[in-house]
Amino acid sequence: MARQIVLDTETTGLSAAEGDRVIELGCVELVDRKLSGNNLHLYFNPDRESHEDALRVHGITTAFLADKPRFHEMAAQIQEYLQGAELIIHNAPFDMGFLNKEFERVGMPSLTSMVSGVIDSLVMAKELFPGKRNSLDALCDRLEVDNSGRDLHGALLDAELLADVYINMTRGQEQLLSMDAAPGALGSSIGKAGIVVQRQDLSHFDLPVIVPSDAELAAHEEVLAQIDKSSGDKTIWRKIA
C-alpha cells in the first residue's frame, strides 16, 4: 500500500529563520493514488501578527487564531499522521523549512526524518512544462482542475487542488508500475540484488502503429523548439537527429 500525503501550510510571513510561524496545516491522504478521506486540517495560534502581505494572501486574522492551539500542543499528532508517508509539496523547501523550525522549537526530529520521502511538485512541473508558469493556479488551468473556489489561499483547499494536479501530472504511471505479470506481460520480482525484470515473449502481441497527423507533428516540433529555447539550445536531440 503506497501512502502519500499532499501537504500545504499558511504562515505569518516568508521567513521561518526570522520568527515567522505556521498558522495553518492542510494534509490530504492518497492511498494507492486515491483520495482516502483521512485528511488533517489544523489552525495554530502563532502568538504574533501576520505580515500585511501574508494576510492579503490567506486572510487568516489574528482574532480568528486567538483560541486555536499552539503548534507544540499538536506536534505529536502531526508526527503520528505523517510518519512513514511520502510527502507531495508544491515548492517543498518553503513548507519544510517552516515545519522543521516548528518541530525544532519543541525538541522533535525534523520533518524529513518522519517521512519516507518528499516529492516537490513545482520541480516536477518545471520539468514537464519548461518555460511555462507553474504556480498552482497555472497548473490548475493547464490541467483542467477546477480552482474556482480559490479566492484566498488556504492550506487544506490548496492541498486538495494539488492532489488533483499531481494525479493529473503523473497519470499513466500507475498502470506502468502495477502491471500484472500475466503470460506475455512484463513481470518482475524482488530478489537480493533488487528488482529483477523477467524476460517475456511479446512476439504474439499485435501492437497498433498510430501515425501522427501533420498538425500533430507541427505541434510537437513547436514544443521541441520551446524546450530548445528555454534550455539555451543545450538539448541534444537535434544533434542525434
Score class of each variant (00 low, 15 high):
Glu18Met: 06
Gly13Leu: 12
Ile78Gln: 04
Gly37Met: 06
Arg3Glu: 09
Met96Ala: 14
Pro93His: 10
Leu40Thr: 00
Gly84Glu: 11
Ala85Asp: 10
Glu29Cys: 02
Gly84Trp: 07
Val57Tyr: 04
Leu25Asp: 08
Met96Asn: 08
Ile60Glu: 11
Ile60Lys: 08
Ile23Thr: 04
Ala63His: 13
Ala54Asn: 10
Glu24Asn: 10
Asp47Gly: 15
Ala92Val: 01
Glu29Lys: 02
Gln77Gly: 08
Asp95Tyr: 09
Ile60Gln: 13
Cys27Gly: 02
Gln77Ala: 10
Ala76Val: 09
Ser15Pro: 01
Cys27Asp: 03
Val31Thr: 13
Ile88Ser: 11
Leu7Gln: 03
Glu52Ile: 02
Lys68Ile: 00
Arg21Pro: 02
Val6Gly: 03
Gly84Val: 01
Leu25Gly: 02
Gln77Ser: 09
Gln4Ile: 02
Gly97Ile: 01
Ile88Cys: 10
Thr11Trp: 14
Gly97Tyr: 05
Asn45Gly: 04
Asp8Gly: 01
Ala16Phe: 15
Leu30Asn: 06
Glu10Asn: 06
Gly26Ser: 08
Arg33Ile: 00
Arg3Asp: 06
Glu86Lys: 13
Thr11Gln: 14
Gly97Pro: 05
Thr61Arg: 14
Asp67Val: 00
Leu14His: 13
Gln83Gly: 07
Asp53Trp: 05
Glu29Ser: 07
Thr9Glu: 08
Val57Phe: 04
